[in-house]
Design a protein around this nucleic acid. Structure first.
Length: 758
DNA sequence: CTGAAAAGGTCAGCTT
DNA sequence: AAGCTGACCTTTTCAG
């Protein structure tokens, strides 16, 4: 059959050229792009727009909404079977729950009305709002993706959420064939994960620079290899060079890039590039205006880069350095090597020399062809004999097709790039215009049927559509533009349109895979410390290299001991918070308490926040806080500022992550804020779990200081401390992969504030 | 218009 | 012998 197809294609090609072939180019498929088809993709596009804009960012989600508001009883409290913080006001709880109910109802009805066929967004809607069974199935899916190490999912764990995560008991369930695009796969084994984690530090887009490619080759050039699960795939997709021995050649040129990756493969989350640039006060250098992969792979990645004739395997490969040295390319002259600052980029799938940026990742010709054939011919590969744990490297990449394909998807190769090919820019704009128009119409219809969404305390005019309201983050547009012209596609938006859900009706499995893909990818890329701490199976020992890398990420991503280095940070723009009562709210969870030495009363209770001049009494026992005891010479307000700012990046990441959950941005801002208010703390609890060393009964803070249980009790950490230890133990015992943790986090966030399983 | 980059196509050689 | 791989090639798109 495959041969038949192949022959057909070949014949067609020979007879009438590529445009007559089965896989004719995009132009021949243009008729498929009807407005309805486009509209079906609106959720995905909206997600892209969400990625692009940051309406729920700083302006739209002021501190008063994010932190000051009392958070409903955290699921974490229930994690240990304890009562939640009774100080959380009932009115707030009911408000949140009501908001959630409204959100869910509206969400579901809206989704059902708009998208009669499954879309990525709808799939998640359904999963999260169609009832307990669906939720249960989702979580089963998560755990079916568990890897070969032992774990268990107790049958009744879902209803009580965290508290039901149990220890022990093997469950050997492997997921089926993956069908997602840009799906970051988890490392194939905990050992590999930990290894990768230990390597993949700081910038999350670590590259392994091998000084030489060939022991016989003294070329000082290097290879940029992606370090990942299998030693060749990255935890991130961003190639950032490390300083090498030939640093004079600019191998450190990228060292000024933010720790938060400034380069992502084309995907919805490609917007992170821009967002991160804004958030972390650094300019994004990885993308040109349209964020096309080409630019990211070559144009910007390596201003000094060049493609030159070479090819072949790393063995014997001759590397041309920037100084022009070139040593006898081993193979033909048509295959090129992708270089970055004089170093060779390797295939993310197998570690071979990458020939370019193919389907969203740097890949070799072999993997490119393999992936293309897999998609074009929809090949169902034989099941892996090794439980899908094959390590895909150059020398054995042909041994297991299933694992190779899985790896291709895992490192971010896009199915849609194969399906659609390259989409002309004008076509992207046309599609965007149609989508925008559709969104406008829907928004108008909604507005006519309901009251305008509750405005946030931003002072901005509330746009009708979440999609539209995100535009202010982009270049200002004239009223005429708003009224008449379709919006100029934002860079990442435009890029994402190239990877839309295909016009055909995807199978439910594919839809789910796409949703999972988006969520897990967002989780992987947004939470800068996700992959090296939490996603690698059992929790890494606190204080280990991993935990330091986690902290390094935080530190390098904008936070420093002396305060944040963010720019355009409207939450914590460097000014002293006029109202720091959010700490008291956090204190309500007794996790980040304003602890006071025993015998002293907490002056902040009922009186607002500590005033200047009383720093000696302030204890902020939160892992995020580098200086829980404060520092000499600092006023109480400054200490609170420190603490506030140390928390900001974490909260921001949660918000960013939420925006990347398919369909989340379809909610009204009110609902989004409600969910975030309810869920941010819970998500952070999940993330903090890795800082709790159950065995040693210690917690490692941002300051890299390890505190014992007794010390923490002394700081005023309450019952939540115990709960967190229990939760950390249970969560860690699951050994969730990064992908699983991402899905879990999404569920926690969207289900926050109450039991979602009821 | 041109060059670069990324897409799809081809087919000799390899593996099963 | 059939199927697969991947190096090489052609085509298409886009930025300058």
């Amino acid at each position: 059959m495959q041969q038949t197809q192949r022959d057909t294609r070949t014949h067609a090609h020979k007879a009438g050229g590529r445009h007559d072939s089965l896989h004719a180019n995009y132009n021949s498929r243009q008729p498929l792009r009807s407005s309805e088809e486009v509209e079906r993709n609106v959720p995905a596009v909206a997600a892209a727009a969400a990625a692009e804009s940051v309406s729920l960012g700083h302006e739209a989600l002021p501190r008063s909404h994010m932190v000051d508001a009392p958070v409903p009883r955290a699921g974490i409290c229930a994690a240990a079977g304890r009562e939640g913080d009774q100080r959380v006001s009932e009115p707030w709880q009911s408000k949140i729950l009501q908001a959630k109910g409204e959100a869910a109802a509206e969400w579901s009805s809206r989704a059902a009305a708009r998208y009669p066929t499954d879309s990525a967004a709808l799939a998640l809607f359904r999963l999260l709002h169609c009832g307990s069974q669906c939720k249960y199935n989702l979580l089963k899916t998560i755990f079916k993706r568990a890897h070969s190490h032992q774990r268990s999912v107790q049958g009744d764990w879902v209803p009580s959420r965290f508290c039901s995560i149990t220890l022990g008991g093997p469950e050997e369930v492997r997921g089926g064939e993956r069908g997602s695009l840009s799906l970051p796969l988890a490392p194939s084994s905990p050992t590999e994960s930990r290894l990768a984690s230990s390597l993949d530090m700081n910038d999350g887009c670590q590259l392994n620079r091998m000084a030489t490619l060939d022991t016989n080759n003294n070329a000082p050039g290097g290879v940029i290899s992606y370090i990942g699960s299998n030693g060749s795939s990255p935890s991130r997709t961003s190639p950032v060079s490390l300083c090498g021995s030939d640093s004079s050649n600019g191998s450190c040129q990228l060292s000024s890039q933010p720790a938060f990756p400034s380069y992502f493969p084309p995907s919805p989350t490609g917007s992170l590039v821009q967002d991160s640039g804004r958030l972390y006060g650094t300019s994004s250098t990885g993308l040109r205006d349209d964020a096309s992969p080409s630019s990211s792979s070559s144009s910007s990645l390596s201003s000094s880069s060049s493609s030159y004739s070479s090819g072949g395997s790393p063995v014997g490969l001759q590397v041309a350095m920037d100084d022009g040295r070139r040593i006898s390319p081993a193979k033909s002259t048509s295959s090129s090597i992708t270089k970055l600052n004089g170093m060779v980029l390797l295939c993310k799938v197998c570690g071979d020399v990458a020939s370019g940026f193919h389907y969203g990742v740097h890949a070799c010709e072999g993997c490119k062809g393999f992936f293309r054939r897999s998609i074009q011919q929809n090949i169902q590969y034989k099941k892996c004999l090794k439980n899908e744990t094959c390590n895909i490297v150059r020398i054995n990449r042909n041994r297991c097709q299933q694992c190779r394909f899985k790896k291709c998807l895992g490192v971010g190769m896009s199915r849609d790039a194969v399906r659609f090919g390259r989409i002309p820019k004008r076509e992207k704009q046309r599609m965007l215009a149609e989508m925008q128009s559709a969104m406008n119409n829907m928004a108008n219809n909604q507005l006519s049927a309901q009251c305008p969404p509750e405005g946030l305390s931003t002072g901005h005019q509330q746009p009708a559509s979440p999609l539209l309201c995100h535009q202010p983050q982009l270049a200002p547009r004239s009223p005429q533009q708003h009224a008449a012209s379709p919006p100029q596609p934002s860079p990442c938006f435009a890029q994402f349109s190239q990877q839309l859900t295909p016009p055909r009706s995807p199978s439910p499995g594919e839809v789910m895979e796409d949703v999972i893909s988006q969520v897990s990818k967002a989780h992987k890329e947004i939470f800068v410390y996700a992959h090296d701490k939490l996603a690698t199976g059992p929790l890494a020992p606190v204080g280990s290299e991993n935990s330091l890398s986690w902290e390094s990420n935080w530190l390098s991503s904008g936070y420093h001991g002396n305060g944040p280095c963010h720019q355009n940070d409207n939450w914590n723009s460097g000014s002293a918070p006029s109202n720091t009562c959010h700490q008291n709210n956090m204190n309500g969870h007794r996790f980040c308490p304003s602890g006071y030495p025993s015998g002293e009363t907490d002056p902040s209770v009922g009186q607002g926040c500590p005033q200047q001049g009383e720093p000696r009494d302030i204890l902020l026992a939160c892992p995020m806080n580098c200086h829980p005891h404060g520092r000499s010479g600092r006023t109480g307000q400054e200490i609170w500022e420190d603490f506030s700012m140390s928390f900001t990046p974490a909260v921001r990441e949660v918000v960013e992550f939420a925006k990347h959950i398919p369909g989340f941005r379809e909610l009204t801002q009110h609902d989004q804020v409600s969910l975030l208010k309810a869920g941010t703390f819970e998500v952070l609890m999940v993330r903090f779990a890795s800082l709790f060393n159950v065995k040693e009964q210690t917690v490692t803070f941002m300051s890299r200081t390890k505190y014992s249980l007794e010390e923490l009790w002394g700081m005023g950490m309450g019952d939540l401390l115990t709960s967190m230890f229990e939760f950390s133990e249970k969560l860690g015992a699951l050994g969730l992969s990064e992908e699983e943790l991402g899905l879990f986090t999404a569920v926690v966030l969207i289900s926050a504030g109450g039991c979602p399983w009821a």
